[in-house]
């Protein structure tokens, strides 16, 4: 599942553990890729948590609901990394 973890993070969570090598591959993919709003990625055995600046998204899109736009970017990134979200 993907959800807003507070107002500045989006978290992807799965029950099945993500292996260390898989986490390293995703983290590396994040570092090498370019992102519109995603600033940082924190990985754990079950989660990928992305940091973003909600005010930046709000002002760029003239909206006070930035979540959907950022979740879309997270989904696109996970798609590129071949993570089934």
């Amino acid at each position: 599942m993907i959800f807003a973890n507070g107002d500045c993070h989006i978290t992807y969570q799965q029950e099945k553990p993500i292996s260390d090598s898989e986490r390293a591959r995703i983290a590396d993919g994040f570092l090498k890729g370019t992102h519109e709003y995603l600033k940082e990625l924190q990985t754990t055995e079950h989660t990928l948590t992305f940091l973003y600046s909600p005010v930046k998204v709000m002002e760029a899109h003239n909206t006070i609901e930035p979540c959907d736009l950022v979740i879309e970017e997270v989904r696109a990134f996970l798609g590129r990394m071949e993570v089934a979200a």
Binding site: N5, G6, H9, T44, T47, T49
Partner: peptide, 12 residues
């Protein structure tokens, strides 16, 4: 406890 490993985020 579901055994999920969470990221420690500020305000969590």
């Amino acid at each position: 406890d579901t055994g999920i490993e969470h990221a420690g985020v500020k305000g969590g």
